[in-house]
Simulated scan of single mutants.
Amino acid sequence: MNADNGVRVHVLKVGAVIEETADARTLVFEVPEELTERFRYRPGQFLTLRVPSARTGSVARCYSLCSSPLCDDRIAVTVKRTAGGYASNLICDTVAVGDLITVLEPAGAFGPRDLDADVLLCAAGSGITPILSILKSMLVGGSGNVAVLYANRDRESVIFADTLDSWARRFPERLQVLHWLESERGVPTADALTDLVRRYRDREWFLCGPAGFMAVTEAAAAGLRVPRVHTEEYRSLQQNPFDQPVRATPARPLGDTAVVEVEIDGETHVLDWPKQTPLLDVLLDNGIDAPYVCRESACGTCVCSVKDGRTRMRQNEALIDDEIALGLTLACQTLPESPRVHIAFDQ
């Protein structure tokens, strides 16, 4: 079903709940046959779950898919309990097989464009979730070499420990897993990580984890002059996509608009584009079912290509410089800079 605001909302049944560690649970979902196409996904993407709340009605939380579209029959997300985290604790404590959970369709732009590339995948804690999806997909569907740097407090907190060992045994020539345990080596520093991963400096890096880990890993990457670094950050959404109000578009002078030609879902639309209104809002106001989740530039779900014309983004947290140079932009943040613009949602 579709929400009134254009967000594609579905209800899925929980087919299995797997206890990964004392603080982490994997939820495996059953996708009805009629929704198979709607739930096709790329490695590294996430699901947004609606979590009931007595105070606000619901909260929305994004959890990365740990499953791979190339080798897993069912989609799955892993949720790690966080101190004081309402949603994660509720999910870990109460969700059971047979429960129905409201979700948005898979979204996000974190993940490799080339499964044959050589990569370094860096994770800490629950950041391993999208990394595992990428790892499995690249080993099964590609030919490149994969190295994983995985930081945790101690051995008991390592999510997917047995799974990682199994994949390393299956692909001994292509997969290397480097564990960093704070109980044995202390908190990772940029200098220490630099020494550990120096041999992978020419690879493409993908990072996911808490802010502190991300900061020291990005510092190591900068010191090693790593050519391309992609990051995925976990944070709470400021707006609830399950409960977005219908927007009313105020009238604007004709001279304050551009014209945009948009290719999306096999159709082409020509629309007036007010110069101070983000592209995503223009599309939704015109009843066009554009992809989005956070509307805050962080998730990358609304990425699209500028084929002709000039645009600018108000802010950007999802795209790297190389992607922007290729013409990619975020619809939720993009404003027109020329009288006519041609946009394509072809990612």
Rank of each mutant, 00 (worst) to 15 (best):
L49N: 00
L47Y: 03
C66I: 08
G125M: 10
T56W: 12
E34I: 11
V17H: 12
A54D: 13
A107K: 05
V119E: 00
L90E: 06
T26A: 07
F46R: 07
E19F: 08
D114G: 01
F29M: 04
A54F: 11
G108V: 03
V51L: 05
I75W: 02
L121F: 02
S53Y: 10
A117Y: 00
V17Y: 13
N89E: 05
L90F: 11
T26K: 02
C92S: 09
D23F: 04
K80M: 11
A22E: 10
P69K: 12
A60G: 11
V31M: 12
L65D: 00
T102R: 13
S58W: 07
C92Y: 06
L120A: 03
D99N: 15
L65A: 01
A76M: 14
L100C: 09
A54W: 08
S67W: 02
R61A: 02
E37R: 14
D114K: 01
T82R: 05
A24M: 05
A117M: 02
V31T: 14
V14C: 11
T78C: 12
C66N: 15
V31W: 06
A109W: 09
S67R: 04
L35S: 14
K13S: 15
L35Q: 15
D72Y: 07
L100T: 09
R61M: 07
E30Y: 11
A109I: 07
V28A: 06
S53H: 13
L100Q: 12
S67A: 15
L65G: 00
E105Q: 13
T56I: 08
R42T: 04
G84D: 04
P69M: 13
L70R: 08
R25D: 10
L121E: 01
S67Q: 07
K80E: 10
P106T: 08
T26M: 03
P32R: 06
V119P: 00
V31N: 11
Y63V: 14
N89K: 04
S64M: 01
G111M: 09
K13D: 11
S64F: 01
A83W: 08
V97P: 03
E30P: 07
A22K: 11
L49S: 00
I91K: 03
A76T: 13
S68V: 13
V59D: 08
R38W: 06
P32M: 03
V77F: 04
G84T: 01
R42E: 06
V103C: 03
P32Y: 06
G84S: 04
V51E: 05
R50L: 15
I18K: 13
R61Q: 07
E33Y: 05
R42W: 05
K13H: 09
L100D: 10
A87G: 08
G84K: 02
D93H: 14
S88A: 06
E30N: 15
K13T: 15
T78H: 07
A124R: 04
S68Q: 13
Y41E: 09
V77K: 02
F110N: 01
V97T: 13
V95L: 10
E19I: 09
S64G: 02
K80P: 05
A83F: 11
D116T: 13
